[in-house]
Design a binder for these strands. Sequence first.
DNA 1: CATGCGTGGTT
DNA 2: TAACCAAGCAT
Length: 253
Amino acid sequence: MLQQTPVTRVEPIWTDWMARWPTPSALAAASRADILRAWGKLGYPRRALRLHEAAATIAAAHDDTVPSGTDDLEALPGIGSYTARAVVAFGYGRRAPVVDTNVRRVVARAVHGAGDAGPARTKPDLADVDALLPPDDATAAEISSGLMELGAVVCTARAPRCGICPVHAECAWQANGRPAYDGPRKPVQGFAGTDRQVRGKLLDVLRGTAHPVPRDALDAVWPDAPQRDRCLHSLLVDGLAEQHDDGRFALPA
DNA sequence: CATGCGTGGTT
DNA sequence: TAACCAAGCAT
């Protein structure tokens, strides 16, 4: 849920979700429609389906227990380098380099003396953070937590609060005179008018109805017919929507 | 490796 | 206010 999504938006949904489906097998037993409605407007609903699939795999192949190794974790749908290591470190208290956008920024500044992190490069990024972790599991996990927190609260992208930074004295960026970031900028992805927006609108209709709806109901939310059709088709392909025998559309069973 | 994938608060 | 961006992942 936290992938590319602010904590404040996730927290209430996560709380309800865990109360409703406290174990992987419980989640696996739920319908896709129920899961997508519970996910609500959290965004990137394919994550909900991947989580559902991951829960089924964990229930069937891992004795209903979330794996504790990065390889097993990364083999699950929706679990990548970051999430796998976050589970190892924060779920199991073990030593694992946890590299999210905040940690990459902290390392870019404090270690490399740059204004910000460039494009993600998984292997070198992992190596950078690995080098910062002590051998002891519990301490390493605590350091990982601290790195993320430092990036989220102090070493922020906009206006870093260097005056209260605990590593100010050792920061390479400070020593460098706080140079501005000069590398390539990740292009900002637009939203208005994109397929993402249209898919969101279509799915919002399906989430909001208890019964399957005719195509007309979907046509109403977007004027561009070719784009609308393309998006509806992609939702069907992704397993986020279903078309019944009578031609009506609904969330998948 | 670049791109597409939701959403809504902040600047 | 349009742009930015928030605990990434899959292809």
